[in-house]
Design a binder for these strands. Sequence first.
DNA 1: CGCCAAATACAACATATGATGAAGTATCGG
DNA 2: CCGATACTTCATCATATGTTGTATTTGGCG
Lengths: 262, 262
Amino acid sequence: MIHTLIRKLSTAGGLTEADEGTLRRVSLHSRQVPAHQDLTSEEDRPENVHLVLSGFVCRYKILAKGQRHITALMVPGDFCDLHVAILDEMDHSLGTITPCTVVEIPRTTIQDLTENHPRIAHALWWATLVDEAVLREWLVSLAKREAAERMAHLFCELLLRLSVVGLAEKNGYALPFTQLDLADMLGLTPVHVNRVIKYLRSEDLIVLKKRRLEIPDVARLKTFYDFVPTYLHHTPRAKKYLAAPTQATNVSPRMRQNSTHR
Amino acid sequence: MIHTLIRKLSTAGGLTEADEGTLRRVSLHSRQVPAHQDLTSEEDRPENVHLVLSGFVCRYKILAKGQRHITALMVPGDFCDLHVAILDEMDHSLGTITPCTVVEIPRTTIQDLTENHPRIAHALWWATLVDEAVLREWLVSLAKREAAERMAHLFCELLLRLSVVGLAEKNGYALPFTQLDLADMLGLTPVHVNRVIKYLRSEDLIVLKKRRLEIPDVARLKTFYDFVPTYLHHTPRAKKYLAAPTQATNVSPRMRQNSTHR
DNA sequence: CGCCAAATACAACATATGATGAAGTATCGG
DNA sequence: CCGATACTTCATCATATGTTGTATTTGGCG
């Protein structure tokens, strides 16, 4: 189970076997959390860091009008809040989307890791920065990509991230989100999410049923929706999945944009 | 000049006079950079960290279609890339918006600071986390706030951030952006930025001329556009500026939204 | 098995924002 | 002081996405 963390951090660079042992030891005691439950909520001052071993966790904010927006997605192997202990209060919440297995690691343990295990410290730093890079990419998506592009982009990102921890096959993976969850990630209405899914299906760009996503031609999806995975900062090991585009067949121009300025 | 950094970091918590001296020494050698010039660009592997002493710097990405999106704004006292040395390559660029005074600090110096000056290290961590919090807030803005709200939110944020470093008066500050710059931050068209400015003016919410912004009634703007500054994690010292809402007068419903779901 | 709640699907209409183009108005170097 | 360039302003039209409401399907659970 903990393999996910180790697999992920290994892509960052060298961990020794001793390091891996340390990580295993630190995350022995996990607990199950049901779906739709908060791990921490706004204005908490959390003492523990959360590591996801299985399931999906999201970081979200609730606006004045009661709308939820999901600012980040944590998959197995991801830390949720490696950092936040430094700030006085949380400015967001963490909640499960699916049932999850989660490890709670005391701040002091993290401090020990960063002070006495330089390679682990470096790997944790790396993970934090990648998270931030993903956040920036989501920002750009919201700002400049239209709905279909945004959704395709998310699907490609997840394919890569899940591949790294062994949770995706060559062109498919379990996607346990409701359309409302997707709406709250993509900044769309549930209705429009439905429309876009319908469109992507009609173009044979995705097959989505029973909470499982298949991408028949990854390169095609990637090419047409401008997915450039550098921001994920993964090493070649993961790159084999979303490889160079084959020459792609065409996608009808509707639901795509070729405007010069947006 | 360097006071801006010290003022900002002091809001995070205690720096001793020795710490301040250290910071001053580290940032002695600044250089002038003209407007519209890159400090680093994508795919660089930068060796120096940039600290802004005067002027505005932005972090931006260029999309496949040539569009620019600005993901972050650095004002005097802000570091641009405290971190990025850990990743293999930059996934974005840094460019000046106005002429700037910038200090380039070698990575090794930063390492020394974080290893041998615990209070400074803590303050730098804090600054990094606040930057990330701002990024999340921008994400939410793009996802759920309509154009006018988004712009008002940005103006409020800048009032606070600039106040902290002594670059804003009680309800105004220099705003040296073109409408195109604003468009690239807010994820809007320049045309629409113009429309929104026109609207905010017509409601007497802002006075914007000669690259200077005045906010006649800060509380009113803040209230009607749902600005909650906790995400900036400023201590009471700064809070005096955007204080509790007085009872606010009304804003016409056009250009505002009261939908339940977006 | 069958019920109930939740999730999906779809249609019709409303609107915020984008696209384009063109006319004013600053700004700045020479 | 001039012209060139960039910026602002505005009008018109186009469209992606939101809104509302309802029907259908799915899935968990007694």
